[in-house]
Amino acid sequence: MMRVTAGSASRGALAGLQADAARLSNLQRQITSGRQITRPSDSPTGTVTALQLRSQLKQLTQFQTNANDALGWLTTVDSTLHSMTSQLQQVRSLVLQGMNTGTGNAASNEALAQQVDQARASLLSLANSSYLGRPVFGGTTAGGVAFDAAGSYAGDTGTVTRTVGPNNAIDLNNPGTATFGPNGSNLFDLLTDISAKLRTNPSGLGTDLAQLDVRQVAITNEQSLAGAKYQRIQSVQNTANTNLVQLKSQLSDLQEVDLADMAIQVTSANAAYQAALATTAKVSQVSLLDFLR
């Protein structure tokens, strides 16, 4: 039979009390920090998963920023091309007027030509529209404009890309030459030609009208392309938002404490600790000496 001595009894009681106190303090640490994993060894696999989730979360947030930026860019493109289309409609009617008037009325044709010149200047400035300081039709040019004052392309053939999801990079632009035509025969050259022909040779406007229609179709196409990209990015964003919520809840499940569960655990740990304290205090007071005269 094992002897129970003053030393062994108090040592056992102390070890038990310390274990209870450690359990309480561990629970307290989790509650005050609000986290289940307060150090890596609390859950090695949980820690590594949490690190991965955090990295994904940061990346996804950055994708959202990229997508918002892309939407801003595409909005600029869309509204610019929209104004251009309506201005080109006006130019077209001016050309038709010129063709109808023919060579008969020089003064009237001069007025038409001046209107076309105005439209050209306005369209040129629209073609140089910029988003955050960058011309949206200039490719990746570091210069401030896509087309110079003479109307020739000053940008490059680089593409502006936004990564809106994992392996989902969207090209935002076509070089200005694709939309407005190659240097020498682009929209602005065409408008210069129209204005010259209105002044000198209105009967030759027929081919220009055909070319104008070609440009207009190209611009409308570009606008619908921008719209399609806008929609695509929005749908990616919606998916990403759902993902973001899921990732956050996964991370929260992994890292954060369940307060209700914690409250119950603390209550039971506290009760056990108090019971141990009370019993130890009562039992260790008693000895044979209390009962001897």
Partner: peptide, 9 residues
């Protein structure tokens, strides 16, 4: 302790 310790009783 159980064999070497002192028991007051």
């Amino acid at each position: 302790q159980s064999s070497a310790g002192v028991s007051f009783d």
